[in-house]
Write a protein that binds this DNA or RNA. Structure first.
Lengths: 235, 235, 235, 235
DNA sequence: GATGAATGAGAATTCATTCAT
DNA sequence: GATGAATGAATTCTCATTCAT
């Protein structure tokens, strides 16, 4: 009878499944959840993603979340201490998946296989971003002021930077700090996905993934490798 | 190279000009402002930058702004219809300066002069970002939902992308759309500056500028050019 | 003949029916109200009548209404979008009752029965006015500017005028438009009741009813009929 | 060098002249006004009539009045202590003219000359109402609560009622109190003019005057007298 | 487990009135 | 005499959170 405190399900892949599993709300943390309770909590988490997406973190009202989740106001507080608590549950899940993804960055050799591996990895990143983008964006908002989310976000950022920095060691030209260059690459990947997702630019996710692979590779090895035939614009 | 004058001063310096011409708030739009009025309005705009910086757009209360500007609640509404109106005034000013900067992107030849020109330009970008970063960050927040700021932001983004795309034509490897690659580069530049400014990473602005120049150049011309001696880490 | 039940009771009596069907306030419009909710809403409506009576529409603060209804500020907005919304609910109820009353105007033959029928009807009008006078008075205030209430008020006025005009056809002397004469009669009835209710004049409601019956009859048939013995001054 | 305290110009007839003369605002009461000052004050009074007309008493802001009068906020308080003070000045002027008019009510014999005299008098009433209607309407609003205007209004009402009651003595049928009947007649005259002026009904002022004359005469003498040829619908 | 109702602190906004020039 | 600017008390309205059923 495991009472799961802060599960960290890991890279689940499927949202509905992930959300369905209990993402740890404070009030619910101690309690054991039956099937019905888990479903309600899942609905609330999913609703959170949706509402944070459309209104942003601060503008999101508990009322909105509750309406989307088709449940009552009171029920919300049965599972989460407040809006921040729900956000934390989401953020931790995202952070966890992000770190898992970071750990999976392939070797990135200076050959076609390397490019392809990078591209595949970027595609996974794009998927993750598409799924949790709203949370990630809200992150930036929530970060302001409060330090808890800031730390969590900085941790994820550091993880990504570190793995890229490792690939850059030796490859980066003299005078360029691999750590800083890695940071720049991560910045590019994150923000480019944001541009695509926010609909501010008219580019498909596939085209952006291909381009990010090419540019990142160029940044790493000093020479752009053309995308293999048939890979362009799958998005 | 002088380190960028910090927000307050910078904003104040521009303001008298800006407020006199474009960025006036709605209620003040119709009226002629005397010296005293212009000063008050300027204080409010500066206070806006400061408060948006520390609390973000949504969390910022008119009361905070008023306190920082050392004026009364009622006075605020003498110059701006509401918080959004003040933000609009700021955003328009930033957008305008951003576009001016975009128009100034140098030719970027594949030589030391090209890299140096790019680096100088990126330094200017970093300065601008340091001055108006809060507004730019808040932009992302304010964008959610409302379409007005979204359009303004998209316009600036498009301007930047366009100038970079022009430099990429011919240089970009086959299979990479210059427009998309330019977008990726802009994403990198913007977000990297954000990382630095938000204090999430321990990197100086100078180091980041140098790195961005190197990486961007590599992305453009397929080969990383080492940073000239003595240029690293000025920030 | 029983003296008219006084405002609070009357309004309360009607309310449960009214609130359940037509006059619901906007925010509550979509929701199903349980017993408790209906009671609270009723208290707010009654409080509205009372406060509009003592302070008039514009001077009435939501705070006053809430205090009288013995509920909280937030609760008010659970049931009504704002003061106007509550007023609308009341105005619609009044308009509806007014129109019902208009439809009930008896034939008014040129005999004692006719006068008596008219007097009874005027007594009902006076009762209605006593109960909802505050709302009716506020109506005039609220009318200014906004067209919604104006239309509602004009509709009621038209209804009353029409029924009186019908009674006047044939009876009105040549050269007098029955429609206009009817309007004059309605004006008299309305305003006279207002004078009585507002306490500006020292006349009982009963005396005014008798007089209005006599004068109206004279206007209709060209000859005043004396009030039957014992009918005068029941006020 | 007469410093005119509370002039009471009497039945001036022409608004611009009336408003131009100093209607006595508290702060200005003690001071002597030069030509310029009198003009400014006049503009403020006229603006008051206009604004009270369009927004009603309570909703009228000093700001509106000042804008219409094309003067500044500060100037207003040079002439009037506050909005109420300006309203008092207007109300007193209206009350004064009203009482003058009441005193002029002709004998009203039961013949053609009587009807014609009544009609002429009603036409004057209509003119007065057209000119000061806004003030009279606002009166009702302002009356609520405060007793000062109430008393003033009641006084005017009493004056009108008294003169009509005098004409009714002897004419009124047994069982009808002349004082009450007079009140009813006054109510009719006042409210009918309001209906016409507020635009709630599509009747010309002239038609209403004719009708009021006929109905009032019928109420007085128990028989409707046809309107003389050619008199109908002058408005 | 769930929910409708209630609450009240907090934020936005308005506007009469005062003041310095 | 006139005016632009400033002020802050008064009000409206929102929304996170608690409670009784």
């Amino acid at each position: 009878m495991p009472s799961p405190p802060r599960p960290r399900t890991g890279a689940t892949g499927d949202r509905s499944a992930a959300a369905g599993s209990d993402g740890a709300g404070s009030p619910a943390a101690g309690r054991e959840l039956r099937a019905r309770g888990r479903r309600t909590m899942g609905r609330l988490l999913d609703a959170g993603v949706e509402v944070f997406a459309s209104r942003g973190y601060h503008a999101a009202r508990v009322d909105d979340i509750v309406k989307v989740a088709q449940t009552s106001h009171g029920t919300f507080y049965l599972y989460f201490a407040n809006k921040e608590d729900l956000f934390r549950a989401l953020a931790e899940r995202v952070a966890s998946e992000m770190r898992d993804l970071a750990a999976d960055l392939p070797p990135l050799g200076d050959d076609a296989a390397g490019v392809e591996g990078l591209r595949a990895w970027l595609a996974r990143f794009a998927d993750l971003y598409a799924r949790y983008g709203p949370v990630i964006r809200a992150w930036t908002e929530a970060e302001i002021g409060g330090s808890e989310f800031r730390r969590l976000g900085a941790g994820v950022l550091t993880d990504f930077s570190r793995v890229f920095a490792q690939r850059l060691i030796g490859a980066a030209p003299p005078g360029v700090d691999p750590a800083v260059a890695a940071l720049a690459v991560v910045a590019m990947i994150e923000r480019a996905n944001y541009y695509v997702l926010s609909g501010q630019v008219r580019v498909t996710s596939g085209a952006m993934v291909d381009t990010l692979a090419a540019v990142t590779h160029a940044a790493l090895f000093g020479a752009a490798v053309p995308a293999p035939t048939g890979m362009t614009n799958r998005g």
